[in-house]
Nucleic acid binder design. Sequence first.
DNA 1: CTCACGCGTGAACCACCGTTAACATCCTCG
DNA 2: CGAGGATGTTAACGGTGGTTCACGCGTGAG
Lengths: 200, 200
Amino acid sequence: MLGMPAADTALHADADRPSRREQILRAAAQLFAERGARAVGVDDVGAAVGVTGPAIYRHFASKDAMLAEMLLRISERLLAGGTERVADAGEDPLAQLRTLIAFQVDFALDNPALITVHDRDLGSLSEDDAAQVRRLQRRYVEVWVGVLGRLHPRADAASSRVRAHAVFGLINSTPHSAGRLPRRQMAALLAAMAEAAATS
Amino acid sequence: MLGMPAADTALHADADRPSRREQILRAAAQLFAERGARAVGVDDVGAAVGVTGPAIYRHFASKDAMLAEMLLRISERLLAGGTERVADAGEDPLAQLRTLIAFQVDFALDNPALITVHDRDLGSLSEDDAAQVRRLQRRYVEVWVGVLGRLHPRADAASSRVRAHAVFGLINSTPHSAGRLPRRQMAALLAAMAEAAATS
DNA sequence: CTCACGCGTGAACCACCGTTAACATCCTCG
DNA sequence: CGAGGATGTTAACGGTGGTTCACGCGTGAG
């Protein structure tokens, strides 16, 4: 814990000159998305940033720790962004829904790789880490469930939860249809479909 | 090829008294869905049907061959079912869409495990097998694209393809929200959402 | 200057797992 | 009844891949 670099564990992205740690996480996310976390070797990740495999261990305790941090960050970003958007959207449930949809669409279009890893490789996490990720996911889902519940006052919570997962599935289809349309068009289409599905 | 049992390679499901081969495929599908194909050992699959690991090789050439057959079957069932439904639905694009949606919803509710494996473990297939599966998938998508194109005559094929993937994502969210609602209610909700999204 | 420490390297270790080999069992059919 | 094939079992092999080790090299502080 004391030998570990103090910054960079935080959430901020460090866009301009990413530290080695960040480079590794980014490269790993890309590789994990393409082949699946278990199919990617430590050497592959190293090679992707111009370093040998074992060098990874100067920055992460283990390969699993890498994956864990990756998934935790994603979940945290989604939860934080989602709650913030809803809070800023006023009282109107439809306005809240629209901003949530726009947020999720942007995220999915910006990070198709993270989307892929997020729901494919949760299983290859330690039980503790997996539980923590699931807690964050659950809270994010609950944000959606709240909005959907206010939008459909006669529906029960279970229906709203199913609805939320269905909308996620719709929006998170981006990895399957990436690059087929210019981004603006893609975003508009997905948002329209998501809204239609959510309000049906 | 000659030593291989002649029947059972076919598509029919053999519901009543499944052969060992079928038992293995079913159990493997379940395990693969839960943990991911690479995380499941041959011994695990064997144990799930009351047999040791190497016994698998009396029925399959390799673990990869198991996965390949599994994915090929799924893709074939979807393509065959989809084309058949559309052919039986007459000329009305909306009627065609409704029957396609009903078909996909039924499949997704009946086989959440297969759905999961289908788009998570394609990557761990040999290049040849993966290509074959992708060809089938593509043809199934084209069935949807045709219907969606007739439904939105002013839209280009790329939009329809994105739309198709989005609807798949919506319906195939069943593994994430399994058992939260009674099946009838679940089917009705998903179908309504899918139709709203597809016709928006 | 030099000492410590951050960052990397190549080699070795070790566990896991797919696969094969060699040997039993049982059921069927001539 | 006896031969053969389908089906299993246990033991062993071999590759892959995560992790550790011992060591090298630069750089900034005392």
